[in-house]
């Protein structure tokens, strides 16, 4: 099978690769580009751990072919914190609200919340919780994640519960 030349921007850096068509975006990001913060839980679209932001939208990277991302801007969890290590507001909220335990689901949760709260969007708590229904967590019982989502919704809309 022939290989396809692609060029993507990952966390602001240009990345080129020659990939077989069957390689998923998650495998490109992890194996070819080294962004192992992209977690692959189920590889068939059920768990949400592999969520990344492609051209501004949260998508499951196991449900997209790498060739389909040619030309796209991709953000993974590695691209969120500042150079000096200052956490992204979503990461900070999850940290403070104990929104993670083993951390396997966390990159997916973070990227879902980051996509919805980015670009000055003002999502409601309901919107954030609705989107999080696409992220499975086996550890936390979700309460910490819910509190983080609530805080992010409030912070954005300026109303405190």
């Amino acid at each position: 099978m022939s290989k396809h030349h692609i060029e993507v921007t990952i966390n602001g850096r240009r990345h080129t690769a020659d990939v077989e068509a069957r390689i998923s975006l998650s495998d490109l990001l992890r194996d070819n580009a080294g962004y192992t913060g992209v977690h692959v839980g189920c590889e068939h679209g059920v768990c949400g751990a592999c969520t990344v932001i492609v051209d501004g939208l949260a998508v499951r990277s196991c449900l997209m072919l790498a060739v389909q991302a040619n030309g796209a801007q991709i953000t993974t969890v590695e691209g969120l914190a500042a150079e000096d290590g200052t956490l992204h507001p979503v990461q900070q909220a999850l940290l403070e609200e104990h929104g993670l335990q083993c951390g396997f689901c966390t990159p997916g949760v973070v990227m879902t919340l980051a996509a919805l709260t980015g670009n000055n969007a003002k999502p409601s708590e309901q919107q954030l919780l609705g989107a999080l229904s696409g992220n499975v967590c086996r550890c936390t019982g979700y309460q910490g994640i819910r509190r983080a989502a609530k805080r992010l919704a409030c912070a954005e809309t300026g109303e405190h519960a």
């Binding site: 998923s24 590889e43 068939h44 679209g45 449900l63 389909q68």
Partner: peptide, 24 residues
Amino acid sequence: VIAGGQTLMPLLNLRMSQPFIVVD
């Protein structure tokens, strides 16, 4: 044919679908 791929990709990943060619 692959459109959004949200059903086809799982089928491909699970090898329940094994097309010769995918038309995107």
